Simulated assay, not measured.
Amino acid sequence: MSEPARPVVAIVQARMGSTRLPGKSLAPVDGRTMLEIMLQRLRRVGALDAVWVATTTAERDDVVAAAAARAGVPVFRGSEDDVLGRYAGAAAEAGAGTVVRLTADCPLIGAEPIEAVLAALREGGADLATNAPPAGRTWPDGLDAEAFSRASLDALDAATTDPALREHVTLGFHRDPRWRVRTVDLDRDLGDVRITVDTQQDLDLVRSLLEELLAGDPAFGLADLLAALERRDLLPERA
Protein backbone atom coordinates (compact mmCIF):
# COMPACT_ATOMS: atom_id res chain seq x y z
CA MET A 1 0.00 0.00 0.00
CA SER A 2 1.13 3.56 -0.63
CA GLU A 3 0.14 6.73 1.13
CA PRO A 4 -1.68 9.45 -0.84
CA ALA A 5 0.87 12.06 -1.88
CA ARG A 6 1.04 14.99 0.52
CA PRO A 7 -0.35 17.52 0.86
CA VAL A 8 -3.88 16.17 0.68
CA VAL A 9 -6.11 19.06 -0.37
CA ALA A 10 -9.90 19.14 -0.47
CA ILE A 11 -11.13 21.37 -3.28
CA VAL A 12 -14.78 22.37 -3.04
CA GLN A 13 -16.63 23.36 -6.21
CA ALA A 14 -18.89 26.33 -5.48
CA ARG A 15 -20.60 28.90 -7.65
CA MET A 16 -23.74 31.01 -7.72
CA GLY A 17 -24.89 30.02 -11.20
CA SER A 18 -26.96 26.94 -10.41
CA THR A 19 -29.76 26.55 -12.97
CA ARG A 20 -32.40 25.14 -10.62
CA LEU A 21 -31.57 26.87 -7.33
CA PRO A 22 -29.15 29.80 -7.76
CA GLY A 23 -27.14 30.73 -4.69
CA LYS A 24 -28.00 27.52 -2.86
CA SER A 25 -24.59 27.15 -1.23
CA LEU A 26 -24.92 30.58 0.38
CA ALA A 27 -28.31 29.85 1.96
CA PRO A 28 -28.25 30.98 5.62
CA VAL A 29 -28.20 28.62 8.59
CA ASP A 30 -28.05 30.21 12.05
CA GLY A 31 -26.25 33.32 10.82
CA ARG A 32 -23.77 31.57 8.53
CA THR A 33 -23.97 30.33 4.98
CA MET A 34 -24.06 26.60 4.32
CA LEU A 35 -20.77 26.96 2.46
CA GLU A 36 -19.08 28.52 5.50
CA ILE A 37 -20.40 25.75 7.75
CA MET A 38 -19.15 23.10 5.33
CA LEU A 39 -15.70 24.68 5.02
CA GLN A 40 -15.29 25.16 8.76
CA ARG A 41 -16.16 21.51 9.36
CA LEU A 42 -13.78 20.36 6.63
CA ARG A 43 -10.92 22.28 8.22
CA ARG A 44 -11.26 19.97 11.23
CA VAL A 45 -10.90 16.77 9.18
CA GLY A 46 -7.56 15.28 10.17
CA ALA A 47 -7.02 13.47 6.87
CA LEU A 48 -6.84 16.82 5.04
CA ASP A 49 -3.84 19.13 4.99
CA ALA A 50 -5.74 22.02 3.43
CA VAL A 51 -9.14 23.07 2.09
CA TRP A 52 -9.65 25.27 -0.97
CA VAL A 53 -12.63 26.58 -2.90
CA ALA A 54 -12.71 26.55 -6.70
CA THR A 55 -15.13 29.08 -8.16
CA THR A 56 -15.38 31.10 -11.34
CA THR A 57 -14.15 34.50 -12.42
CA ALA A 58 -17.75 35.68 -12.94
CA GLU A 59 -18.63 38.76 -10.92
CA ARG A 60 -21.61 36.99 -9.34
CA ASP A 61 -19.16 34.58 -7.69
CA ASP A 62 -17.46 37.36 -5.74
CA VAL A 63 -19.83 36.46 -2.89
CA VAL A 64 -18.59 32.86 -2.99
CA ALA A 65 -15.00 34.07 -2.63
CA ALA A 66 -16.08 36.33 0.24
CA ALA A 67 -17.79 33.45 2.06
CA ALA A 68 -14.67 31.30 1.68
CA ALA A 69 -12.55 34.14 3.07
CA ARG A 70 -14.84 34.39 6.12
CA ALA A 71 -14.25 30.68 6.68
CA GLY A 72 -10.48 31.16 6.38
CA VAL A 73 -10.23 29.15 3.16
CA PRO A 74 -8.24 30.21 0.05
CA VAL A 75 -9.96 30.49 -3.32
CA PHE A 76 -8.97 29.73 -6.89
CA ARG A 77 -11.02 31.39 -9.62
CA GLY A 78 -11.12 30.02 -13.15
CA SER A 79 -13.25 29.36 -16.19
CA GLU A 80 -16.99 29.03 -15.74
CA ASP A 81 -17.35 26.38 -18.47
CA ASP A 82 -14.04 24.51 -18.23
CA VAL A 83 -14.55 22.98 -14.80
CA LEU A 84 -11.77 20.44 -15.29
CA GLY A 85 -9.32 23.24 -16.08
CA ARG A 86 -10.54 25.20 -13.07
CA TYR A 87 -9.91 22.20 -10.86
CA ALA A 88 -6.47 21.53 -12.27
CA GLY A 89 -5.60 25.19 -11.75
CA ALA A 90 -6.80 25.08 -8.15
CA ALA A 91 -4.79 21.94 -7.45
CA ALA A 92 -1.67 23.52 -8.94
CA GLU A 93 -2.05 26.74 -6.96
CA ALA A 94 -2.69 24.78 -3.77
CA GLY A 95 0.41 22.64 -4.39
CA ALA A 96 -1.71 19.51 -3.90
CA GLY A 97 -0.22 16.03 -4.07
CA THR A 98 -3.60 14.36 -3.65
CA VAL A 99 -6.95 16.02 -4.35
CA VAL A 100 -10.28 15.29 -2.68
CA ARG A 101 -13.09 16.61 -4.86
CA LEU A 102 -16.15 17.92 -3.02
CA THR A 103 -19.10 20.07 -4.07
CA ALA A 104 -20.85 22.85 -2.19
CA ASP A 105 -24.28 21.27 -2.73
CA CYS A 106 -23.21 18.54 -0.26
CA PRO A 107 -22.85 20.61 2.96
CA LEU A 108 -23.57 17.68 5.30
CA ILE A 109 -20.38 15.86 4.36
CA GLY A 110 -17.99 14.95 7.14
CA ALA A 111 -14.81 12.98 7.73
CA GLU A 112 -16.03 9.45 6.98
CA PRO A 113 -16.65 9.73 3.20
CA ILE A 114 -13.36 11.57 2.76
CA GLU A 115 -11.43 8.99 4.77
CA ALA A 116 -13.11 6.18 2.81
CA VAL A 117 -12.05 7.41 -0.63
CA LEU A 118 -8.56 8.24 0.58
CA ALA A 119 -8.23 4.74 2.02
CA ALA A 120 -9.32 3.26 -1.32
CA LEU A 121 -6.79 5.40 -3.16
CA ARG A 122 -4.15 4.32 -0.66
CA GLU A 123 -4.68 0.69 -1.67
CA GLY A 124 -3.08 1.57 -5.00
CA GLY A 125 -3.88 0.66 -8.56
CA ALA A 126 -6.50 3.38 -9.14
CA ASP A 127 -6.49 6.81 -10.73
CA LEU A 128 -9.80 7.70 -9.08
CA ALA A 129 -11.48 6.51 -5.89
CA THR A 130 -15.13 7.54 -5.68
CA ASN A 131 -18.23 6.91 -3.58
CA ALA A 132 -20.40 8.58 -6.25
CA PRO A 133 -20.12 6.44 -9.40
CA PRO A 134 -22.44 7.15 -12.35
CA ALA A 135 -24.41 4.01 -11.42
CA GLY A 136 -24.65 1.73 -8.41
CA ARG A 137 -23.83 4.13 -5.61
CA THR A 138 -24.47 3.03 -2.01
CA TRP A 139 -23.63 6.27 -0.17
CA PRO A 140 -26.43 8.85 0.20
CA ASP A 141 -26.64 11.41 -2.60
CA GLY A 142 -25.14 14.35 -0.74
CA LEU A 143 -22.09 12.69 0.81
CA ASP A 144 -20.15 12.63 -2.48
CA ALA A 145 -16.37 12.43 -2.27
CA GLU A 146 -13.72 11.56 -4.85
CA ALA A 147 -9.96 11.26 -4.47
CA PHE A 148 -7.20 11.25 -7.08
CA SER A 149 -3.57 12.15 -7.34
CA ARG A 150 -2.48 15.49 -8.70
CA ALA A 151 -0.56 13.58 -11.39
CA SER A 152 -3.74 11.79 -12.53
CA LEU A 153 -5.66 15.07 -12.57
CA ASP A 154 -2.99 16.77 -14.65
CA ALA A 155 -2.89 13.83 -17.06
CA LEU A 156 -6.68 13.87 -17.42
CA ASP A 157 -6.60 17.64 -17.99
CA ALA A 158 -3.98 17.26 -20.71
CA ALA A 159 -5.77 14.36 -22.44
CA THR A 160 -9.34 15.71 -22.40
CA THR A 161 -10.34 17.87 -25.37
CA ASP A 162 -14.10 17.23 -25.53
CA PRO A 163 -15.83 20.35 -24.08
CA ALA A 164 -18.64 18.16 -22.74
CA LEU A 165 -16.14 16.19 -20.66
CA ARG A 166 -14.35 19.35 -19.51
CA GLU A 167 -17.60 20.54 -17.94
CA HIS A 168 -17.17 17.74 -15.39
CA VAL A 169 -14.05 17.11 -13.35
CA THR A 170 -14.00 13.32 -13.20
CA LEU A 171 -16.33 12.14 -15.97
CA GLY A 172 -13.34 11.51 -18.22
CA PHE A 173 -11.99 8.98 -15.73
CA HIS A 174 -15.18 6.95 -16.14
CA ARG A 175 -15.50 7.31 -19.91
CA ASP A 176 -11.99 6.24 -20.96
CA PRO A 177 -10.85 2.70 -20.07
CA ARG A 178 -7.24 3.80 -19.76
CA TRP A 179 -8.12 5.20 -16.34
CA ARG A 180 -8.58 2.90 -13.37
CA VAL A 181 -11.56 3.70 -11.15
CA ARG A 182 -12.19 2.20 -7.72
CA THR A 183 -15.72 2.49 -6.31
CA VAL A 184 -16.12 2.81 -2.54
CA ASP A 185 -19.23 1.18 -1.08
CA LEU A 186 -21.04 1.69 2.19
CA ASP A 187 -21.94 -1.41 4.21
CA ARG A 188 -25.62 -0.49 3.75
CA ASP A 189 -27.28 0.53 0.50
CA LEU A 190 -28.39 4.13 1.02
CA GLY A 191 -27.91 5.21 -2.58
CA ASP A 192 -31.53 6.32 -2.92
CA VAL A 193 -31.32 8.67 0.08
CA ARG A 194 -31.18 12.27 -1.08
CA ILE A 195 -29.47 14.90 1.09
CA THR A 196 -27.89 17.06 -1.60
CA VAL A 197 -29.22 20.55 -2.39
CA ASP A 198 -30.73 21.03 -5.81
CA THR A 199 -34.31 22.16 -5.12
CA GLN A 200 -36.08 24.22 -2.48
CA GLN A 201 -37.36 21.01 -0.90
CA ASP A 202 -33.77 19.72 -0.69
CA LEU A 203 -32.67 22.98 0.86
CA ASP A 204 -35.40 22.89 3.51
CA LEU A 205 -34.41 19.36 4.53
CA VAL A 206 -30.66 20.01 4.61
CA ARG A 207 -31.12 23.25 6.55
CA SER A 208 -33.23 21.46 9.16
CA LEU A 209 -30.65 18.68 9.47
CA LEU A 210 -27.81 21.17 9.89
CA GLU A 211 -29.70 23.16 12.52
CA GLU A 212 -30.42 20.00 14.53
CA LEU A 213 -27.00 18.40 14.20
CA LEU A 214 -24.91 21.52 14.76
CA ALA A 215 -26.83 22.26 17.95
CA GLY A 216 -25.88 18.82 19.25
CA ASP A 217 -22.27 18.65 18.07
CA PRO A 218 -20.62 20.92 15.46
CA ALA A 219 -18.31 17.99 14.61
CA PHE A 220 -21.21 15.58 13.98
CA GLY A 221 -20.35 12.45 12.04
CA LEU A 222 -22.01 9.90 9.81
CA ALA A 223 -23.72 8.04 12.66
CA ASP A 224 -25.27 11.27 13.93
CA LEU A 225 -26.51 12.16 10.44
CA LEU A 226 -28.00 8.71 9.83
CA ALA A 227 -29.74 8.85 13.22
CA ALA A 228 -31.29 12.20 12.30
CA LEU A 229 -32.47 10.77 8.98
CA GLU A 230 -33.89 7.72 10.79
CA ARG A 231 -35.87 10.00 13.08
CA ARG A 232 -37.39 11.57 9.97
CA ASP A 233 -38.17 8.12 8.55
CA LEU A 234 -35.96 8.86 5.54
CA LEU A 235 -33.82 5.71 5.59
CA PRO A 236 -34.80 2.43 3.95
CA GLU A 237 -35.35 -0.57 6.16
CA ARG A 238 -32.34 -2.81 6.60
CA ALA A 239 -32.39 -5.87 4.40
Rank of each mutant, 00 (worst) to 15 (best):
F220V: 02
S18I: 02
L234A: 09
R231A: 14
V181E: 03
F220A: 00
L128R: 01
P28S: 09
E115Q: 14
I37D: 13
Q40A: 12
P113V: 01
A145K: 02
F148H: 09
A158T: 14
A58P: 01
D82L: 03
D192Q: 13
A132V: 12
Q13N: 13
V9F: 03
L21G: 00
H168W: 10
D81H: 13
I11L: 09
L226W: 09
C106K: 12
E123M: 04
T19L: 12
D187R: 14
L42G: 09
E212A: 15
A120N: 10
R194H: 14
S152A: 15
D82F: 11
L108A: 04
V73L: 09
L143R: 03
W52S: 05
L42Q: 00
E93C: 11
T56W: 02
D105R: 09
P113D: 00
V64M: 12
G17R: 14
K24C: 09
A151W: 05
W52C: 07
L213G: 00
A120Q: 09
R178P: 03
W179L: 00
E36H: 10
A54Y: 11
D176E: 15
V8G: 06
R70H: 04
A158G: 13
T56Q: 07
L234W: 06
W179G: 02
G125M: 11
L153G: 01
R6T: 10
G124C: 11
A88P: 03
R231H: 15
F220P: 05
V8N: 03
D176Y: 02
S18V: 00
R180H: 06
A164H: 14
L84Y: 07
V63E: 15
D224S: 12
V83F: 13
G89T: 00
L190E: 01
A54R: 09
W179F: 10
D105G: 08
R70D: 08
V51I: 08
V99F: 02
V9K: 08
L222P: 05
V53R: 11
T19D: 15
T199V: 09
L39H: 02
D157S: 14
A68W: 06
A111R: 13
L84F: 02
P236Y: 11
D30W: 09
G136D: 06
S149N: 11
T138L: 04
D192R: 14
T170R: 06
D198I: 01
L102Y: 05
T103Y: 10
D127H: 10
G172A: 08
E80G: 14
D144Q: 15
L190A: 04
G221W: 12
V12S: 07
T55K: 00
A228N: 07
R60A: 14
R175V: 11
I114R: 10
P113F: 07
L128D: 05
G136V: 04
G23I: 00
R6P: 11
L210S: 02
S208C: 07
D105H: 08
Q40Y: 01
A126P: 03
R101N: 15
L209V: 06
R43V: 12
G23H: 08
A164S: 14
A151C: 05
G78Q: 07
